[in-house]
């Protein structure tokens, strides 16, 4: 690892100031991505600003039909939270399949979505559930938040405060893990909320995306068979060591059907 300065601010204001004053700063949430990256000398920030001790970024709360999760909430907290399980069980389920138990004890929702790894799980949930990302300066709709591979709408120095998920009527996440890394080779989150159905796909493309034709088919008939006969185009899908675009296209269909079935 290269040298850097380490800071552990206690407030958002302090974190903002530290960021502004540093040469090439990097926010750190749970560190489960940035630490391995720095270990391999693939990143060399001048300053690491650890957000883990900022109380404004913690906690899970429910308000009416909406669930709000603080940016620094660990995956295991989401997975084990009674509020989450009650409001959006699919979200708890998703969190329980990120990485492994030790990683889930450090990794956070804020870190995950800010990193926007194309194979991360959370982006699918945010997009399918129509979540809103509250940052230090604004609210961003999930669909506008994830912009490209490893890129988000966040500006320099802007931090995620929390994410608010409207509770869906039905939802489920199906993940096909990469056998080596346990990231999603492909993951599909399906959510039905009132008159809307959303199908969000992660792991298959450069960035999370919605499978619009699936959504339309499910809108009239929220059942696996509604997706029969629909094929997924390989355009824009990833092709790598673990899965070709054709295979990922197949996974999208299979996982979407299973998610619909699972959602009930």
């Amino acid at each position: 690892m290269y040298e850097f300065e380490y800071h552990q601010p206690k407030s958002l204001e302090e974190a903002t100031k530290l960021f502004a004053d540093a040469d090439d700063p990097q926010f750190m949430a749970g560190g489960q991505t940035i630490i391995p990256v720095m270990k391999q000398r693939l990143a060399m920030p001048s300053d690491i600003i650890d957000l883990g001790k900022i109380s404004d970024l913690q906690g899970i709360s429910v308000d009416g039909g909406a669930l709000t999760i603080g940016a620094m909430t660990h995956h295991n907290e989401v997975a084990g939270s009674d509020e989450v399980r009650k409001a959006i069980p699919a979200l708890a389920e998703l969190a329980s399949h990120i990485g492994d138990p030790a990683v889930r004890n450090r990794g956070t929702i804020g870190g995950s979505i800010a990193n926007n790894d194309p194979a991360a799980d959370y982006p699918a949930a945010l997009v399918a559930l129509g979540a809103t990302v509250q940052t230090t300066s604004r609210e961003i709709a999930a669909e506008d938040f994830f912009t490209a591979m490893f890129e988000t709408a966040l500006d320099e120095g802007e931090m995620i405060v929390n994410v608010t998920f409207p509770a869906p009527e039905k939802a489920a996440y199906e993940k096909f893990p990469n056998p080596a890394s346990r990231y999603a080779t492909t993951g599909v989150f399906v959510a039905k909320t009132g008159e809307s159905v959303r199908v969000a796909v992660t792991g298959a493309g450069a960035c999370v995306f919605r499978q619009i034709d699936f959504e339309k088919a499910l809108l009239g008939d929220f059942s696996p068979s509604a997706l029969d006969g629909l094929t997924v185009s390989t355009d824009g899908l990833n092709s790598d060591l673990h899965a070709s675009a054709e295979y990922r296209a197949n996974l999208i269909s299979v996982l979407a059907k299973r998610a619909v079935k699972h959602a009930g």
Binding site: Y6, I35, P36, K39, G52, P101, A102, V103
Partner: peptide, 28 residues
């Protein structure tokens, strides 16, 4: 180096954590 093997798992405040994916400074 990539948090897969788990040989470094310890307990931090009672929870299992990969000690190769946490800075010493964070353990204050």
């Amino acid at each position: 180096d990539t948090s897969q093997c788990g040989a470094c798992v310890i307990h931090v405040d009672g929870k299992p954590v990969k000690s190769c994916a946490m800075l010493a400074a964070q353990a204050d």
